[in-house]
Structure formats: C-alpha cells, structure tokens
Design a binder for these strands. Structure first.
Lengths: 244, 244
DNA sequence: CCCCACCATTGGTAACACCTTTCAGTGAGG
DNA sequence: CCTCACTGAAAGGTGTTACCAATGGTGGGG
C-alpha cells in the first residue's frame, strides 16, 4: 500500500538509499514518525541493515526536503509539516499515497484553480502552432473516449492536455507543475473521486479551452479553464468530512 | 590544485558539503556548467579538496534537485533546465543570484499573480482574529514608512504582509510559497526594480487588501490583490523582456 | 547557581571490494 | 576491404568498514 516504488526522479533502479528514503519519507509524511521524534544513524543502520554511508545519504536527502534536521550530539529530529518542502515531487507522492490524501488533493486542486487559468491564458499567447494543433486533436479524442465511457485512456488524455497547456504557457514555474497536476488527476481516479464519469459539461469545457487557446483568445481560454476547474472542485466537494 | 571554498553567503552553518553544493548548484543554474557536461566524484574531490563522502552527498543533493543525474560508469551529468526542481528554495536562490535573474523574477511574479489573489480570498475566510488584526496594523505601518520613503523597512513589512496572507489562507501549498514571495520582493528591491518611493496607489491597494481580508470580504480581497499585483507587474515591465 | 568535564552522536576522512556499463579490440563472414 | 557481433578490460559510481574530529547536552562538583 504505501511504498509502491515512487519513481519520481529520472528513473533508475532501486538503489539502496532510495528504498530507505522511501520508507522513512512515507512514515514521516504519514505521521507515523511524529514531529519531534528522534532518530539516529545507528538506528537507521540497524533497522534497514545498511551501512553508515547509506544511512547518512538518506538522512541528507530527508533533511534537504525539510522532513528532518540533523544536529550533532542530539541526532536526527523529525520536523513538523510546516517545514516540509511540499512542492518536492517525492513529498507529494508520499502524501498522496498515505493518509490525508484527500486533504492533499484538496489543496493541490486549489493550487490548480489558481494556476491553470493563467497558464491557459499564457498558452493562448505563447503556444506554437503544433501545440495548438495537438490541443484540438486532444479535445476531439477526449470527446470520443469520454462519450464511450472509457475512463482510463480518457484520464491519460486529460493529463496530456493539462500538461501541454502548462508547458505551452512559457512560464517555467507553471511548467514545473505538470507532475503535480498529473499526480492529482491520477490520484483522483484512484481515490474513486473521479467526479466526471465524463459528464458532457466537462467535455464541452475541455473543448472550449482547447479551441480558445488554439485561436489565441486568451481571455476566453482563461475563463473556460476557470469554469472547468470550478466544475472539478464542486464535483470533489462531497468527500469533505475532515476539518482541522 | 585549486582547492576552493565557496561560501555564497547563504547564511546557514557552513558545513563542508553545503559549500560545495552551493558552488556547484550556482554554476549549474547559472549555465557555467552547461547541460550535458560531465562530472566525476574524483573531479569534485580534487577540485574542492574534500573526501569522497562529501562529494557523494553533494552529488546526491544535486541529483535530488534534478540538476544532475548520476549513472554508473558514465559519471555525473548536468541536466537541462527543464528537469530542475524550480520550486526548491535553493534553486530559486541560486537563480536569483545568477544571470537570468530578471527572467526568474518575471516568471515568479506571474506565479504570484496566479496564487496570491486566491490566497487573499481564502485568508478572508480562514484567518484568525489576531491575524486579521496584525494585517490592519501592517497596513498602517506600511503607509507611514512608505510615505516617508524608507524603502528597506517598508520591504520588510511588505514581506510580512504577503507571508501572513499566504499562511492565513489555510492552504499548505500556498503557505509554502512564502519563501518564494519573500525572495521575489527582496530580489526586486535589490535589482532596483522598485520605485524609490512606493507609489500611493500601491499603498492604497495594500490598505484595501488588508481591510477586505480583515472584514472577511473575500471577493473584495481577491480583486484588490489582483489589482495590486497588476500594478507590480506593470511597474516591472520596463526591464527588457528577454526571450530565449 | 554557575562552570566544567564527559561522552553520545553527527561530521569528515581513508581505503577497499563490487557491480554495471561502456567501449575498444578482435575475429569471422561477406 | 568493410561490417558486425562478441568479448574483455577499464572506468566510475555503489556500498562497506574503520577511525578520528568536532560539538553540544547532561550531570556532577564547586
């Protein structure tokens, strides 16, 4: 359940430190290792049967993600969520895989609502010709797949479309969110939150976004994307029992 | 043997691997070490006069930021900008310190335009009473400092206000951008992109945002913040937009 | 109450065995 | 003579162990 090989980086095989990192990262972000909890290198060596070098590298990586701090004599201390680097792909992955997944999905969706409309507007201005063409193609294919109710391939196209828009925006900070958005879209289906059993409304809005961007109408693209995401957020609302 | 020690003044405790990390990170993000360029652990040891352990830990950290990949036999390869983790605080810092600083400021500002209006709206709903009070205080102090033309302390308050709003939004993804926004605001003054005296318009808009959030009027807060940021973007325009 | 000594724990160095991947060299076949 | 497949050596990261240095929390002594 938790540690299904988080291949977040450029994927090489399972190096030793990566599996240890995955285990500890998951536990910290899941709250199993509570903030303030102390670790030691010896403890890590012992627990995972690895050498000091591997334990140290793992610890450095955890530290660079803000999950722990390491101080002499006192050891390694788990940090509270506030200091986690929540834009780190691995952190996002762990949190989506653990409990609090719906909380995470919710805040990520809010981020999407903030970013994607502007990204769509920028894409309408900046996209290359081939990107615009691909966008229109995608809209057509999505409609076909959506109406025939094939959810998985539909999701793939959905991911591709949003990624394309983010990349075409010409803003590297937007483009860097493609993985996040992909994770949200995939996580949403996995969680069974998949709101649109491709509702016609969503299909129409995707179509509208694609057309507007392709035609360079940035205002239309922005508002269409905004409405699309409002749809997404509303469809997600029902699963809200959790308040902190 | 050029054993150099590079401390780019980034404050934290000057541990050995950190200074090496800083040096290499800066060079890669600055483009001095071009994508595709090859490094070796031996080379790093030699150049910085550090042990293999330190070289390895540095390399792991660079890899976790997407700046390099490490493969057996082939060595360490510098990655193109597209795979950098541009939300990592250190990457942002390096890029703001190096060339392409204005490009970076521009894309970060666009990100602010996307996020901060929604953050303000959320803050209007979610902020605690003391946060609302502090916001009003800040607006008053900012006006005083702004009208007397004291740029540095004005900037500090500016940073505090935007940080407060992001944290008060209740969305961890927004809150995690406080460092980014702080870096942008500070970078903007350093770059001389700020008018020597805050324009009255900006002061009024800060005031308006503060009042709206404090009063819980989320729509007013959102539009006020949007106008504030539009002002920021326009004030920034004069610097030549460089296209890559 | 303050100061100092102790020692647990990370920080850093060194030397080593191992495994994977690349690449050059070699030979056979066309 | 050219091409291609095989082969083996070397390059370079991966992982292990042992050891010393620095540091800061803790507790004991004044």
């Amino acid at each position: 359940m938790g540690t299904e090989r988080a291949d977040t980086g450029a994927g090489h095989g399972a190096s030793l430190h990566r599996s240890v990192l995955d285990a500890l990262g998951s536990e910290i972000t899941a709250g199993t290792l509570a903030p303030g909890h102390g670790l030691t290198l010896d403890g890590i060596q012992e627990r995972f049967g690895v050498s000091r070098t591997v334990a140290r590298e793992t610890m450095r990586l955890l530290e660079s993600m803000g999950l722990v701090v390491s101080r002499r004599r006192v050891g390694i201390t788990v940090q509270p969520p506030g200091s986690w680097h929540v834009y780190d792909p691995r952190v996002i992955w762990w949190r989506l895989a653990g409990p609090g997944r719906d909380t995470q999905l919710r805040s990520l969706t809010e981020l999407r609502i903030a970013v994607e409309p502007l990204a769509a507007a920028a894409a309408a201005r900046e996209a290359t010709t081939s990107q615009r063409e691909r966008l229109l193609e995608l809209a057509v294919e999505m409609r076909a797949l959506g109406e025939s109710g094939r959810l998985e391939p539909f999701m793939d196209l959905d991911v591709e479309m949003h990624s394309l828009l983010l990349r075409a925006s010409g803003n590297e900070m937007f483009a860097a969110l493609t993985d996040v958005v992909a994770a949200v879209l995939r996580g949403r289906t996995q969680l069974g939150l998949m709101p649109h059993r491709p509702v016609p409304e969503a299909l129409d809005l995707h179509d509208e976004v694609a057309r507007a961007v392709a035609a360079g109408e940035h205002e239309a693209a922005e508002t269409a994307m905004r409405r699309l995401l409002a749809e997404v957020r509303d469809a997600m609302a029902p699963v809200r029992p959790r308040r902190r």
